[in-house]
């Protein structure tokens, strides 16, 4: 077992997959210099043919990744969620739709590592948390890791997956440390975490709290405070939103009868909206109280440090929401 930061765990995953499969290459802006940390030492190790610095042309190079995947490569593209808007045509019209539209002829093993740098005084253009957009788009797999072990295992699974995967990496979690097993400690010698399998972060009895990315960290600290008041929450990290492990969440709600979903995306049509919808449709008869959504306010991210923190889910908001379900 080793203690790694999330960004180190992701870097390790990419190294392992590039080592294993020559079809894997890494592309993005400033990836050779590894300015975001995840591509550290890739260029030194794999050279210019496998680690590509791109022009500032997200639509162009994401489209190139798509085209290269059709004929044999397994691209891993690094970008920021905020820059993906300019590449929406390639992400949606091609990456998401090609396989279906061509009757299954296309194979699209593309992994987009989409960094979300929010809550850092970057204002509205650099603070996007856009995974709900892609949940709404069939054909894409939506990966939302929180803890270093999951980040590594899910990243590896994504690179090996034959369908388009967008791994949404929470920039606030880059420095989050956690235990990651050594490959020698794992049965098959590799950390591969399956999609569509939620992690029960903490067991509890009174209220199910589903957390997306950084929300799990807030939920854990909220849990400690609630514990002192005799309230026990069960924290579940879905880890992937498409495919989505509704069974684990429904089972938990069957036990607790209560649901809070914490999601840093804007609250309207958020991941939280979808999860609450699934639970109310399929787990309605187990509910003791209306589910509560703790998601970002429906407004753009303001620059001022006085305003920005008002937007996102916090430990306090989670505590309040849990108590509301227990009234």
């Amino acid at each position: 077992m080793k203690n790694l930061m999330q960004v180190e765990a992701i870097n390790e995953a990419i190294h392992e997959e590039m080592e294993k499969d020559e079809a894997v290459y890494y592309m993005g802006e400033d990836v050779r210099a590894s300015i975001y940390g995840a591509s550290k030492d890739l260029f030194n190790k794999y050279g210019e043919n496998r680690v590509l610095d791109t022009p500032l042309s997200e639509n162009g190079f994401i489209g190139a990744a798509v085209g290269s995947s059709l004929v044999g490569m397994r691209p891993v593209v690094e970008t920021l969620t905020s820059f993906m808007w300019v590449a929406m045509d390639q992400l949606v019209s091609q990456l998401a739709k090609m396989k279906y539209m061509f009757g299954g002829q296309a194979s699209l093993p593309v992994t987009i590592k989409a960094d979300m740098y929010y809550n850092g005084s970057m204002a509205a253009h650099h603070s996007d948390r856009s995974y709900p957009f892609f949940m709404n788009m069939p054909g894409i797999k939506v990966i939302v890791p929180t803890f270093p072990e999951d980040a590594k295992g899910l990243m590896k699974t994504a690179i090996r997956d034959n369908d388009p995967c967008i791994v949404f990496v929470d920039g606030n979690l880059g420095g989050l440390k956690g235990d990651v097993p050594e490959n020698s400690e794992i049965e098959n010698g590799e950390l591969l975490i399956p999609f569509g399998k939620a992690r029960v972060v903490k067991e509890g009895t009174d209220c199910t709290v589903v957390g997306i990315v950084n929300s799990n960290v807030h939920a854990l600290s909220a849990s400690e405070k609630l514990e002192k008041e005799g309230i026990s929450i069960e924290i579940i990290d879905p880890r992937t939103l498409v495919p989505f492990d509704k069974e684990t969440i429904l089972k938990s709600v069957e036990k607790t009868g209560r649901l809070v979903v914490v999601d840093p995306a804007h609250k309207v049509c958020s991941a939280a909206s979808e999860i609450i919808s699934v639970v109310t449709e399929e787990g309605f008869w187990n509910l003791q109280a209306p589910p509560v959504k703790v998601a970002s306010e429906q407004v753009h991210i303001p620059f001022s440090p006085a305003l920005e923190p008002l937007i996102y889910p916090t430990e306090e908001k989670i505590i309040e929401a849990v108590k509301k379900t227990l009234e």
Partner: peptide, 25 residues
């Protein structure tokens, strides 16, 4: 035939990517 696209110019990056594979491989 890597497919026709209903969105104009949307195939241009895709074909460029196929050429990238030729180069990388």
């Amino acid at each position: 035939i890597l497919g026709e696209s209903g969105i104009v110019a949307s195939s241009v990056p895709v074909a460029t990517g196929a050429a990238l594979t030729s180069k990388l491989q």
